[in-house]
């Protein structure tokens, strides 16, 4: 059986959060809900999310800040922004900050699924490439080094992944 995609949804509209989460759960997503940015970042520390769906405008920490922190702390997470504002400027800004996609509210559910899947694929590809790179690095490292050195270098690479 295929591994469930681990998804974090952050929105201050609880009703929205509940319904979207249930629908995604029906489609083999493993969903974690957060109603504000602080909770979201805390959850992300404990669980390795594949993807995050972020509302842009939220009381307290807003979507952009959460995006920045997530991208900084988690190398392979892909983030999709959701917003009711839907202005081009904020879309560009979020993309620069590393968001994979940008969806204006209300959106078509099929479109969301499509974007989520694309994002997941992109994440897999990125992970795969990173793994390849790691293998290459490892093979280079292995040449003419002591086993202790090799282990130390491998731990370094792991830290980078995190």
């Amino acid at each position: 059986m295929e591994r469930k995609i681990k998804l974090l949804i952050v929105d201050d509209e609880e009703k929205f959060l509940d319904s979207i989460a249930r629908r995604l759960e029906m489609r083999e997503f493993e969903v974690t809900k957060a109603t504000n940015g602080t909770d979201a970042i805390n959850y992300a520390k404990n669980m390795k999310f594949d993807l995050a769906l972020l509302d842009l405008k939220m009381p307290g920490m807003d979507g952009k800040e959460v995006l920045e922190i997530l991208k900084r702390e988690h190398k392979f997470i892909e983030v999709i922004m959701l917003t009711g504002h839907g202005s081009l400027e904020s879309a560009v800004e979020c993309t620069k900050l590393g968001a994979y996609g940008y969806l204006p509210k209300p959106y078509e559910f099929e479109k969301l699924i499509e974007v989520l899947k694309d994002a997941y694929e992109a994440r897999l590809k990125k992970k795969f490439e990173a793994d390849q790179l790691r293998l290459e690095k490892l093979s280079q490292l292995a040449l003419g080094r002591s086993p202790i050195d090799i282990l130390r270098e491998m731990r370094k690479l792991d830290d980078e992944d995190q």
Binding site: E13, K15, F16, S19, I20, R22, R23, K57, L82, T83, G84, H85, G86, P104, K105, P106, Y107, E108, F109
Partner: peptide
């Protein structure tokens, strides 16, 4: 205002889908 309207609309769409 758009934000104010789009949010409930998103709820509608999402609930209907559910």
């Amino acid at each position: 205002i758009a934000h104010e309207i789009n949010n409930p609309l998103a709820i509608v769409a999402s609930e209907v889908g559910l």
